[in-house]
Protein backbone atom coordinates (compact mmCIF):
# COMPACT_ATOMS: atom_id res chain seq x y z
CA UNK A 1 0.00 0.00 0.00
CA UNK A 2 1.13 3.55 -0.64
CA UNK A 3 1.05 4.23 3.09
CA UNK A 4 2.74 6.54 5.54
CA UNK A 5 5.30 3.79 6.32
CA UNK A 6 6.88 3.97 2.86
CA UNK A 7 9.36 6.66 3.85
CA UNK A 8 12.33 6.18 1.49
CA UNK A 9 13.18 9.47 -0.22
CA UNK A 10 10.40 11.48 1.41
CA UNK A 11 11.43 14.98 2.42
CA UNK A 12 10.75 17.25 5.35
CA UNK A 13 11.45 14.98 8.31
CA UNK A 14 14.33 17.11 9.48
CA UNK A 15 17.77 16.28 10.85
CA UNK A 16 18.70 12.97 12.47
CA UNK A 17 18.60 12.88 16.27
CA UNK A 18 22.13 11.50 16.42
CA UNK A 19 22.78 9.20 19.33
CA UNK A 20 25.77 7.03 20.15
CA UNK A 21 24.26 5.78 23.41
CA UNK A 22 23.95 1.99 23.21
CA UNK A 23 21.33 1.61 25.99
CA UNK A 24 18.60 -0.63 24.52
CA UNK A 25 15.61 0.85 26.37
CA UNK A 26 15.06 4.42 27.56
CA UNK A 27 11.80 3.83 29.42
CA UNK A 28 10.50 0.86 31.35
CA UNK A 29 7.42 0.67 29.10
CA UNK A 30 9.67 0.24 26.04
CA UNK A 31 11.31 -2.77 27.67
CA UNK A 32 7.91 -4.25 28.65
CA UNK A 33 6.64 -3.87 25.08
CA UNK A 34 9.79 -5.52 23.71
CA UNK A 35 9.31 -8.47 26.05
CA UNK A 36 5.59 -8.69 25.30
CA UNK A 37 6.16 -8.74 21.56
CA UNK A 38 8.54 -11.71 21.99
CA UNK A 39 6.14 -13.60 24.26
CA UNK A 40 2.64 -13.30 22.77
CA UNK A 41 1.93 -14.14 19.15
CA UNK A 42 -1.50 -15.00 17.78
CA UNK A 43 -1.86 -18.38 16.02
CA UNK A 44 -0.83 -18.43 12.37
CA UNK A 45 0.54 -14.88 12.42
CA UNK A 46 3.22 -14.09 9.86
CA UNK A 47 5.84 -11.36 10.01
CA UNK A 48 4.29 -9.82 6.91
CA UNK A 49 0.79 -9.71 8.36
CA UNK A 50 2.23 -8.06 11.52
CA UNK A 51 4.09 -5.51 9.36
CA UNK A 52 0.94 -4.80 7.38
CA UNK A 53 -0.99 -4.23 10.61
CA UNK A 54 1.65 -1.66 11.58
CA UNK A 55 1.35 0.02 8.16
CA UNK A 56 -2.41 0.34 8.71
CA UNK A 57 -1.98 2.55 11.80
CA UNK A 58 -3.56 5.96 11.20
CA UNK A 59 -0.85 8.27 9.74
CA UNK A 60 -0.97 10.74 12.62
CA UNK A 61 -0.39 7.91 15.11
CA UNK A 62 2.29 6.26 12.95
CA UNK A 63 4.35 9.45 12.89
CA UNK A 64 3.27 10.96 16.19
CA UNK A 65 3.63 8.13 18.69
CA UNK A 66 6.94 6.68 19.89
CA UNK A 67 8.31 3.61 18.13
CA UNK A 68 7.55 0.92 20.70
CA UNK A 69 4.14 2.52 21.22
CA UNK A 70 3.42 1.70 17.57
CA UNK A 71 4.42 -1.90 18.33
CA UNK A 72 1.89 -1.92 21.17
CA UNK A 73 -0.80 -0.51 18.90
CA UNK A 74 0.03 -3.14 16.26
CA UNK A 75 -0.16 -5.88 18.87
CA UNK A 76 -3.52 -4.57 20.12
CA UNK A 77 -4.83 -4.69 16.55
CA UNK A 78 -3.60 -8.25 15.89
CA UNK A 79 -4.93 -9.48 19.26
CA UNK A 80 -8.35 -7.87 18.67
CA UNK A 81 -8.50 -9.16 15.08
CA UNK A 82 -7.65 -12.66 16.34
CA UNK A 83 -10.31 -12.48 19.06
CA UNK A 84 -7.92 -12.45 22.03
CA UNK A 85 -9.49 -9.24 23.33
CA UNK A 86 -12.00 -6.57 22.39
CA UNK A 87 -11.91 -2.80 22.10
CA UNK A 88 -14.22 -2.67 25.14
CA UNK A 89 -11.69 -4.64 27.21
CA UNK A 90 -9.14 -1.86 26.79
CA UNK A 91 -11.47 0.67 28.40
CA UNK A 92 -11.84 -1.41 31.55
CA UNK A 93 -8.41 -3.01 31.79
CA UNK A 94 -7.68 -1.57 35.21
CA UNK A 95 -10.84 -3.18 36.58
CA UNK A 96 -9.91 -6.68 35.37
CA UNK A 97 -6.36 -6.36 36.64
CA UNK A 98 -7.29 -7.58 40.12
CA UNK A 99 -7.10 -11.30 39.48
CA UNK A 100 -6.02 -13.54 36.66
CA UNK A 101 -8.85 -15.23 34.78
CA UNK A 102 -6.61 -18.04 33.59
CA UNK A 103 -3.36 -19.59 34.75
CA UNK A 104 -0.37 -18.07 33.00
CA UNK A 105 1.92 -20.14 30.79
CA UNK A 106 5.06 -21.34 32.59
CA UNK A 107 7.70 -18.68 33.25
CA UNK A 108 10.77 -18.93 31.03
CA UNK A 109 14.19 -18.34 32.61
CA UNK A 110 16.91 -16.19 31.08
CA UNK A 111 18.66 -19.32 29.78
CA UNK A 112 15.44 -20.58 28.20
CA UNK A 113 14.81 -17.23 26.57
CA UNK A 114 18.34 -17.14 25.16
CA UNK A 115 17.78 -20.61 23.77
CA UNK A 116 14.50 -19.46 22.25
CA UNK A 117 16.19 -16.49 20.61
CA UNK A 118 18.70 -18.90 19.04
CA UNK A 119 15.86 -21.09 17.76
CA UNK A 120 14.15 -17.98 16.34
CA UNK A 121 16.73 -17.81 13.56
CA UNK A 122 13.88 -18.45 11.16
CA UNK A 123 14.73 -19.19 7.55
CA UNK A 124 12.41 -17.88 4.85
CA UNK A 125 13.93 -19.68 1.87
CA UNK A 126 13.11 -23.01 0.27
CA UNK A 127 14.04 -25.05 -2.77
CA UNK A 128 11.57 -24.60 -5.63
CA UNK A 129 11.34 -26.40 -8.96
CA UNK A 130 11.51 -23.34 -11.19
CA UNK A 131 14.82 -21.81 -12.22
CA UNK A 132 15.51 -18.13 -11.52
CA UNK A 133 14.24 -15.88 -14.33
CA UNK A 134 17.15 -13.48 -14.00
CA UNK A 135 20.91 -13.92 -13.96
CA UNK A 136 23.56 -11.99 -12.06
CA UNK A 137 24.57 -8.95 -14.09
CA UNK A 138 21.26 -8.78 -15.97
CA UNK A 139 19.48 -5.44 -16.30
CA UNK A 140 15.94 -5.36 -14.90
CA UNK A 141 13.18 -2.81 -14.51
CA UNK A 142 10.94 -2.68 -11.46
CA UNK A 143 7.14 -2.60 -11.51
CA UNK A 144 5.62 0.87 -11.96
CA UNK A 145 2.70 0.35 -9.60
CA UNK A 146 2.03 -1.11 -6.18
CA UNK A 147 -1.26 -2.41 -4.82
CA UNK A 148 -3.51 -1.86 -1.84
CA UNK A 149 -2.01 -4.68 0.25
CA UNK A 150 1.40 -5.31 1.80
CA UNK A 151 4.39 -5.12 -0.53
CA UNK A 152 8.13 -4.70 -0.15
CA UNK A 153 8.79 -2.71 -3.32
CA UNK A 154 9.10 0.87 -2.03
CA UNK A 155 7.64 3.72 -4.07
CA UNK A 156 11.04 5.30 -4.65
CA UNK A 157 12.29 2.22 -6.51
CA UNK A 158 9.30 1.68 -8.81
CA UNK A 159 9.71 1.85 -12.57
CA UNK A 160 13.50 2.04 -12.18
CA UNK A 161 16.32 0.25 -13.94
CA UNK A 162 18.68 -1.83 -11.86
CA UNK A 163 21.18 -4.66 -12.16
CA UNK A 164 20.89 -8.09 -10.56
CA UNK A 165 23.71 -8.27 -8.02
CA UNK A 166 22.90 -11.68 -6.48
CA UNK A 167 20.16 -14.28 -6.34
CA UNK A 168 19.30 -14.90 -2.69
CA UNK A 169 17.29 -18.05 -3.38
CA UNK A 170 13.51 -18.48 -3.26
CA UNK A 171 12.06 -16.62 -0.26
CA UNK A 172 8.53 -16.41 1.16
CA UNK A 173 6.68 -13.85 -0.98
CA UNK A 174 5.58 -11.06 1.40
CA UNK A 175 2.64 -9.74 -0.63
CA UNK A 176 0.85 -13.09 -0.11
CA UNK A 177 2.40 -13.96 3.26
CA UNK A 178 0.58 -10.89 4.61
CA UNK A 179 -2.63 -12.79 3.78
CA UNK A 180 -1.38 -15.95 5.45
CA UNK A 181 -0.54 -17.63 2.12
CA UNK A 182 2.96 -19.03 1.81
CA UNK A 183 4.60 -19.36 -1.58
CA UNK A 184 8.30 -19.04 -2.38
CA UNK A 185 9.67 -16.91 -5.15
CA UNK A 186 13.21 -15.94 -6.12
CA UNK A 187 14.45 -12.85 -4.30
CA UNK A 188 17.37 -10.88 -5.74
CA UNK A 189 19.73 -8.21 -4.50
CA UNK A 190 19.27 -5.47 -7.09
CA UNK A 191 21.69 -2.58 -7.47
CA UNK A 192 20.46 0.87 -8.49
CA UNK A 193 22.68 3.82 -9.21
CA UNK A 194 21.80 6.87 -7.14
CA UNK A 195 21.25 8.93 -10.28
CA UNK A 196 18.69 6.39 -11.57
CA UNK A 197 16.69 7.00 -8.39
CA UNK A 198 17.17 10.70 -7.69
CA UNK A 199 17.40 13.65 -10.07
CA UNK A 200 19.73 15.51 -7.74
CA UNK A 201 22.20 12.58 -7.71
CA UNK A 202 23.24 13.12 -11.32
CA UNK A 203 26.87 12.07 -11.72
CA UNK A 204 27.03 10.43 -8.28
CA UNK A 205 29.07 7.25 -7.85
CA UNK A 206 26.78 6.05 -5.03
CA UNK A 207 24.55 2.96 -5.16
CA UNK A 208 21.40 1.73 -3.44
CA UNK A 209 20.74 -2.01 -3.05
CA UNK A 210 17.31 -3.53 -2.47
CA UNK A 211 16.23 -7.16 -2.06
CA UNK A 212 13.34 -7.65 -4.48
CA UNK A 213 11.13 -10.57 -5.50
CA UNK A 214 10.75 -11.83 -9.06
CA UNK A 215 7.14 -10.50 -9.30
CA UNK A 216 8.46 -6.96 -8.85
CA UNK A 217 10.88 -7.26 -11.79
CA UNK A 218 10.86 -7.53 -15.57
CA UNK A 219 13.74 -7.92 -17.99
CA UNK A 220 14.92 -4.59 -19.38
CA UNK A 221 14.92 -5.09 -23.14
CA UNK A 222 15.53 -1.51 -24.05
Amino acid sequence: MDGIHDLGGKQGYGPIEVDTDETPFHHDWEAREWGLAQSARTPGITIDWWRHCRELIAPEDYLGRPYFDSWAQTDFATYIEAGWMTLEDIGRFDAVGVGAEDDPPPALSLQQVLQEDHSHAFRFDAEIEADPLFAVGQEVITASHGHAGHTRLPQYARGRRGTIQACNGAHVFPDLSASGIEIHQYCYSVMFTADELWAEASGSRDKVFLDLWESYLAGDNE
Binding site: F68, D69, D75, F76, M85, E101, D102
Partner: peptide, 15 residues
Amino acid sequence: VKALETLLVDRGLVN
Protein backbone atom coordinates in the same frame (compact mmCIF):
# COMPACT_ATOMS: atom_id res chain seq x y z
CA VAL B 1 1.62 -0.84 27.24
CA LYS B 2 0.46 -1.44 30.81
CA ALA B 3 -3.07 -2.04 29.50
CA LEU B 4 -1.75 -4.50 26.94
CA GLU B 5 0.33 -6.45 29.48
CA THR B 6 -2.49 -6.52 32.03
CA LEU B 7 -5.00 -7.87 29.50
CA LEU B 8 -2.62 -10.57 28.27
CA VAL B 9 -1.66 -11.65 31.78
CA ASP B 10 -5.30 -11.75 32.91
CA ARG B 11 -6.17 -14.02 30.02
CA GLY B 12 -3.33 -16.39 30.80
CA LEU B 13 -1.60 -15.61 27.49
CA VAL B 14 1.66 -14.25 28.86
CA ASN B 15 3.76 -14.83 31.94
